[in-house]
Design a protein around this nucleic acid. Structure first.
Lengths: 124, 124
DNA sequence: GTTTATATTAACGTTAACGTCAAGGTTAAT
DNA sequence: ATTAACCTTGACGTTAACGTTAATATAAAC
């Protein structure tokens, strides 16, 4: 099948598939005559796996670093270990972001209070 | 004074001042002969006010919408009311972000647990 | 009058994941 | 053989706040 059909089956646009190819996430199984990209069911599976990993919050770069592991080993053990490591890093980053936002929120609250008092003084 | 001196006094780069000018945040008091920008102490005060508002977390666009109020009215009442409104909006956005991150964290934790169990099964 | 320091505008680069043309080539159907 | 539908690469646009050249002009100092 060609890129349009694959895109439709995978629920993405042809542009997305070309973009993924550029990042090394996926390749056409064949590229003959007129220069068209031809794909098989294997590439559809790959796109579905990419979508699955995206929904876990992985970036495309992280997906690129992990996706081949899914198709090298039938148990997918190494793939899952890799994804686990990435998710644990995300957890840490998320906690850091929450802490930073909590800090920011606290400073905001302080500044809001200050300005309110300042406005009250002026309004008197 | 010219842009370099103003920049140094304000602790920014000339590029920053030109960028601010582009956004309508500040203008040279004069632009004569050779095309150089000339500034007075008033512009230094303005840059300091910009820096102050930045440190409150305002974007340059928000600063642009508020800064003139500081120099129109000596009590700065309207300016402070405007900034207060902006900060209250930021507070809401911050709370929203924290809530979204907390949700994301929870999903992450769920996925991590799932994968760990999956890995254990395979490893048996 | 020449060097040196500083100024000018213009324009690309920085992040992520594509959307959206544009100009042209290929394939399938009629 | 023509048309419609699809494909190709290339390149700009999207956010924020500037940093960093580059090529050129002006001012200040000697």
């Amino acid at each position: 099948m060609r890129i349009g059909e694959l895109a439709q089956k995978a629920g993405v646009t042809p542009r997305t598939i070309r973009y993924y190819e550029n990042l090394g996430l996926i390749h056409p199984s064949e590229r003959e005559g007129g220069g068209f990209r031809y794909y098989t069911e294997a590439e559809l599976l790959r796109l579905q796996k990419i979508d699955c990993l995206k929904s876990l919050g992985l970036t495309l770069e992280e997906i690129a670093s992990a996706i081949n592991l899914y198709f090298e080993d039938p148990t997918e053990l190494k793939a899952k270990q890799k994804v686990l490591t990435i998710l644990q890093a995300h957890l840490q980053e998320t906690d850091d972001k929450i802490a930073a936002l909590a800090q920011f929120r606290s400073e905001l609250q302080t500044n809001i209070t200050k300005i309110q008092q300042c406005i009250e003084k002026i309004s008197q």
